[in-house]
Each structure stands twice: as C-alpha cells, then as structure tokens.
Nucleic acid binder design. Structure first.
Lengths: 223, 223
DNA sequence: CTAGAATTTCAACAATTGTTGAAGACGTAA
DNA sequence: TTACGTCTTCAACAATTGTTGAAATTCTAG
C-alpha cells in the first residue's frame, strides 16, 4: 500500500500541481514548466505520464469527476427514496446537488477546492464549457433534472432548464473564488467560505424554482 | 468626421479584434499576432497604440464600460422615479439591470456581444474577477444594491449580497455563450438568444429576492 | 545479485511569444 | 514642393513554449 503510494507519487504530484494551477490561471495561463516546478519534477515527466498538455488537462478533470458524480447521485437517490412515493421538495433536491461538495472532502483534502474552481473555469469557458462539461457530467445532471421536473409539475421544461442554468451560474461564480463579493460587501460575505455561500445560494435558487409552480398555476387558472 | 474616422481606423480595428478574441479564448489564449492578423494590421502597431499586451486588455474593457454603466444607471433612476415615493418592485429593478444590455446596441453592433462575453470571462476569472470588475463597475453596482435594499425592507444585507452574487453568476454564464444549455435541453433553450435567456433569468432571480421578504417576515413573526 | 522494465532526468529542438528600434508611408501645414 | 509629426510596417531580438530522444536512475522479478 505504502509502496503503491510511492510508486505513483510523482504522477499524482503532477496532477495536483496541474489541478491547482489550471484552476487559478486557466489552461493557457499555465506552462508545463510551472506545473513541473510546483510538483518538484522534471518537465519531461508530465509528457511521459500524460502525453501532450491537453491530455493532462483532461486527466485532471477526469480524476475526480466520477467520484463527484457518484456522491451527488447517492445523495439524490436518498432524497428521492425518503420522499417516496411523493416527489421530494425542491429545496431538498437542490441540497442533494450542493451538500456532497462539502460533507466528505472539503477539509480533508484541499485538492477538491481547486477542482471545484477548475470546474468553474471550464463551465464558463466559451471554448470548453459546451463540450467538456457535457462529457464529464451530463448523465448525473440529466438525472437531477428529471427528479426536479417531478417536483415541478406543470412547469414548462424550458423554465426548468433556464432555472438550472441560473443554479449552475451561481455555483460556478461562487467556486471561481474571485473575492469580488468580499470587496462588494465590505467583507460581510466571504467568498472562501463555500459552505456558507451555498446555504444562501440554496435558498435563493430554491425560491426561483418554487416560484415557477405559482406562475404556472396562475397561467392555467386564467385559461 | 469621415477623416477622423479613418484616422483612428486601425486603432479601433485592433480594439475590435482584441475584444472578440479575448472574449473567446481569454487573455492568455490570444497572441498579439492573432489580434493583428484579424485586424489586418502589423504586430507592432498594437504596441504602438496601447503599449504592452496587458494595457491593451484594459483598453478593451474600458472602452465600453462607462457607456454601459451610464445606460444602466439611466434605466435604474427612471425606474426609481416612476415608483417614487415608494420603492420600485424588485422585478423592475432587475429589469433595469438587464434591459440596457439589449435595447440599443445588441443588433446594431455585434461588438457589444463580444464585450459582454469578455465581461463574463473577467468576472469569473480568479485572477481578475476581484480587481477588474471592482475597478470598472463598482459605483454602478453599489447604486443598484442600494435601490434593491429599499425594495427589500427587513432583509439582511448578507442575503442581498449573496442574491446579487447569484444574479451575477447567472448572467455571467449566460453571456459566456458556452452552448452548454443547448446540448442539455436538446436545443429547447438557445444560448445565443440572450434577450430570451434574460427574460427567464429575470423571473428566476426576482423570485429569489422576493422570497427573502417572506423569509424575513416569517423570522420576525416567530420572535 | 542480475537482467530487464518502468520511471525520471538531462539536453536540446523548432516554433512561438511579447517587445523594440529603425525604416518607410502618410497626412498636413507652410 | 518642402518639412515635420504621426502612423504603420519591417526585421529582428531574447525569452519562453511544448515536445522529444537518449541517458541515467529506480524498481521489480527471477
């Protein structure tokens, strides 16, 4: 076990360094030499383990994607089962999307925080937001949307999708950790306290979805 | 006039090319040669007009910032005056933040669309989101937040700031134009139809803010 | 211990980067 | 025209980029 750990020592060090730097400066803002230096490793080693730079980027994304997806799906199915046979509350669904991000890993391993920031970068990147996010997270998200629709009967699909878009945007900006809200609020809000941020975002987003029910009821009533 | 136009022809061409490319690929993803080529100009000319690369980036941001800020503030003050002496509706305040983005320029000049995408890039960038957004847009946003607070009596400031953060995140992701929502919704939602997107975002965000009033009333009722 | 495979480093490559100074082209006013 | 200041291009720079093949090291199985 310890031998196995040591064997892949430098390979993981490269992934960690790449994860951290890509999250901070984006794909083009990071050189392989900067990654190698932070990992305490020669430049050529990155190419040996992962091939070209772009493949290293994919490897960083892939490493934690499946773990995160499974965490979220577990939380979601637990929520569904607890409410069965009724659909779950909207807020509980949102929570199942948010809480797995913190419960287990946040403190234990700071790499996850970098990973979330990296996803934020990818998600809002015009180059890769459309393709990479789809590639790594689509099945999990489709399941969430399906459950969400059961909790929003009579709401048009288009509203649900744009609602998810708002949710994703809010989450993305929070994890990007720009520190902007700190300035704006005179340090009343701290952008590095992600669990606290998510509490507020959950309430805000859940209200946005719940209002769709009222709106669609009003619509059908007038017909 | 026409002479003045021609005089600054290439200078503006450089700004336009830089705006477009920076929005698509980020600061580090664009070379001065790529900008020069798209502008139909020699590489050295960018440096002559704007100095180092970083200063060109700032020049692109600055060019439209004041215009956009004044448009938004005009719309906001009109909303305030129309509702006076009462505070405006939350939804009207949000609209005053969104509508100036489209009314005048969207169709006339496609450069604005690139500019919005560029702001999306800057806003979600860990490197510059905290500083550059503050530098260019803070006074306008503080005015919006002040008006928003008048429409949300009894709501804690912290909730308002996080609400704005959600608003900003949703808007940012929409303008990033990643095409992700198109995939996700099977082309039910079109990420390049920004006015349509914003209609949905306005409703969603306004509901998030409005719910804060109900929540704070419930809180004070139980005390 | 030894041979061979896997890992890591070293040295160097061609290509590209931002930047610069000198030379040329342009417009303008005398 | 001439002369001058602005704008634009040309050519080249040192530095940095991703990548590669060979050498050196470490690990592992027999």
């Amino acid at each position: 076990m310890a031998a196995e750990n040591k064997k892949q020592d430098k390979r993981e060090a490269i992934l960690n360094a790449a994860e951290n730097l890509f999250a901070k400066h984006g794909y083009d803002g990071v050189t392989l030499r900067a990654i190698a230096k932070e990992a305490g490793v020669d430049v050529a080693l990155a190419n040996y383990h992962f091939g070209p730079k772009r493949d290293l980027f994919d490897a960083v994304l892939l490493r934690r994607a499946q773990i995160l997806n499974s965490w979220r799906l577990e939380a979601l199915e637990a929520t569904v089962q607890k409410a069965a046979p009724n659909p779950p509350d909207v807020k509980d669904i949102i929570r199942a999307y948010f809480e797995p991000l913190f419960k287990r890993s946040q403190v234990q391993e700071p790499g996850w925080k970098s990973y979330y920031a990296l996803i934020a970068y990818v998600n809002s990147s015009p180059e890769w937001g459309g393709t990479l996010m789809t590639q790594f997270f689509d099945p999990m998200i489709h399941r969430f949307l399906a459950v969400l629709k059961t909790a929003l009967p009579g709401v048009p699909d288009k509203s649900v999708y744009w609602g998810y878009h708002c949710l994703s945007g809010a989450l993305t900006l929070a994890f990007a950790q720009t520190g902007r809200i700190d300035h704006l609020s005179n340090d009343l809000c701290k952008s590095d306290d992600l669990p606290d941020a998510c509490d507020y975002i959950v309430d805000f987003v859940a209200a946005g979805f719940s209002d769709m029910i009222a709106a669609s009821e009003k619509e059908t009533a007038t017909l």
